[in-house]
């Protein structure tokens, strides 16, 4: 059944949506405008919306005159490894939660979900002490493990939902065709959860990319720094280099944005799967 909207309703809804978009995009547009202004114009008062004179020098400076490229590479590497580890844990745990019956399964699942509700800052000190005592401070290994541990509970729940939607007969058919349980899982079940894998991948990527707290606490040298803590370097004791900071921020936003745009349809499918029959 479809309902026809009146012109007034349509305008009201359209207007509300436009306002929402403007509200969401305003900071980004302001950042872009600032990044395209010379430092003197960016810090002048009253602020000008339109960059005049218009310059790309801030982008050139942060990309080639600083370590930003390195930070971006570090973030990309950490995010990729974190996605791999998160998915590895989540697909196996999610499958076990979906398919195996064992004592305390529900309680365990609830407990797993509870861990993702703890605010990061609450366990930052224990995590820092643990990583330091293991001798892993200022290493990618530590960051990847912490990020994966942080994302795995949510990812496990998402993947569990996906595995539950896959008919058991497909696996049984694979057994009859000559597969072991693991072979049936890797060759038949896992390929069918691609939207779920994409959703978990994007969520983990965005989380790792945007994280400041863990990245800042677990790294110390410039060559290990991730992009968000790298941006913080533009906030100095002598002031904030707004034009360069905004240029670096714009560059830092591009990878997650691109990832989302490219995988958007799968991501949405992944998040809504199982919501309706």
């Amino acid at each position: 059944m479809t309902t026809r909207r009146s012109l007034g309703e349509g305008i009201a809804i359209g207007g509300f949506l436009l306002l929402s978009i403007a509200f969401a995009l305003l900071p980004l547009l302001w950042a872009l405008s600032t990044a395209l202004k010379p430092a003197s114009v960016a810090e002048s008062y009253p602020p000008a919306w339109w960059p005049s004179p218009f310059t790309f020098s801030n982008f050139v400076d942060v990309l080639f005159g600083s370590n930003l490229a390195r930070y971006l590479m570090n973030s990309a590497l950490t995010a990729t490894l974190s996605i791999a580890l998160t998915l590895f844990v989540a697909v196996h745990a999610g499958y076990a939660a979906a398919r195996f019956q064992f004592a305390g399964r529900k309680q365990l699942l609830f407990l797993i979900l509870c861990t993702s509700m703890i605010p990061g800052i609450a366990i930052l000190v224990p995590v820092y002490l643990l990583v330091t005592s293991l001798g892993l401070h200022n290493t990618f290994v530590a960051m990847v493990m912490v990020y994966a541990a942080w994302q795995a509970p949510t990812a496990t729940w998402i993947m569990r939902g996906f595995f539950q939607t896959i008919p058991r007969e497909l696996e049984e058919s694979a057994y009859m065709d000559g597969c072991s349980r693991l072979m049936a899982f890797y060759r038949i079940v896992l390929p069918l959860t691609q939207p779920g894998l994409a959703a978990v991948g994007i969520l983990t990527f965005v989380y790792v990319w945007n994280d400041f707290l863990i990245a800042y606490a677990l790294t110390i040298t410039d060559d290990m720094r991730l992009v968000q803590s790298g941006l913080y370097l533009y906030v100095t004791a002598f002031g904030i280099e707004w034009s360069k900071l905004m240029a670096a921020a714009i560059l830092a936003v591009i990878p997650p944005m691109l990832t989302f745009v490219l995988l958007q349809s799968r991501f949405i499918q992944g998040l809504t799967k199982g919501a309706i029959k």
Binding site: P167, E169, L170, E172, S173, A174, M176, I188, L192
Partner: peptide, 10 residues
Amino acid sequence: MVFQNYALYP
């Protein structure tokens, strides 16, 4: 075995 819902790999 032929299953009720065919169980073809999608």
